[in-house]
């Protein structure tokens, strides 16, 4: 048994990485929906530390907004993975609880950073995408206001690392 696998009492082997259905194999069956192992989904490894940091936020409003944001990010990662995007192209995600009680999470690459800031006043919460010269010196930011469709925004931002290659 590989280190990335788990064996149940009924001797069913579960993979730590959801396997895709191979259309070339007739009558291939899966033990569950391919995203049924969401806690073992590749997106979890990208986000486990950020979720842990968000759970330590003291202000309940900021904590609530941060966890909602991270939930939306995780759903977007699952969506991208479902559509065969290589999540290995997305850089590690980090998070920090600032001394003033606010929260920041960012994806950090050598040539760009994508970040999200959760502020005490929700209307001030924001996102950014900044890049070095070799990627066009992009210098973008905006708000995570309540009327913003976070899922669309996050998808647009997470496509950037995938397009960079």
């Amino acid at each position: 048994m590989k280190q990335s696998e788990q064996i149940t009492d009924s001797k069913q082997v579960l993979s730590f990485v959801p396997k895709r259905i191979d259309s070339s194999i007739n009558n291939q069956t899966m033990g569950n929906d391919i995203h049924g192992y969401s806690w073992l989904h590749p997106s979890s490894s990208l986000m486990v530390d950020t979720i842990s940091t968000a759970r330590d936020i003291e202000d309940p409003n900021i904590k609530d907004e941060a966890l909602k944001l991270l939930h939306n990010i995780q759903n977007t990662l699952k969506f991208l993975d479902f559509h065969s995007c290589d999540l290995n192209l997305i850089p590690p995600m980090h998070a920090h609880n600032n001394e003033d009680g606010t929260f920041i999470t960012e994806l950090v690459s050598k040539n760009y950073r994508i970040g999200f800031n959760i502020e005490k006043e929700n209307i001030e919460s924001s996102w950014y995408l900044v890049t070095k010269g070799n990627l066009g010196e992009i210098d973008a930011s905006g708000y995570l206001a309540p009327n913003i469709n976070q899922n669309k925004l996050i998808l647009w931002l997470l496509l950037f690392p995938l397009m960079e290659y």
């Binding site: 920041i104 960012e106 040539n111 760009y112 950073r113 970040g115 800031n117 502020e119 001030e124 924001s126 996102w127 950014y128 900044v130 890049t131 070095k132 210098d139 973008a140 930011s141 905006g142 708000y143």
Partner: peptide
């Protein structure tokens, strides 16, 4: 300066 701009610029400096 708006906080979002300050934090974006901070990310630019970090790069």
């Amino acid at each position: 300066i708006p906080k979002k701009s300050m934090k974006k610029i901070s990310a630019g400096i970090a790069l």
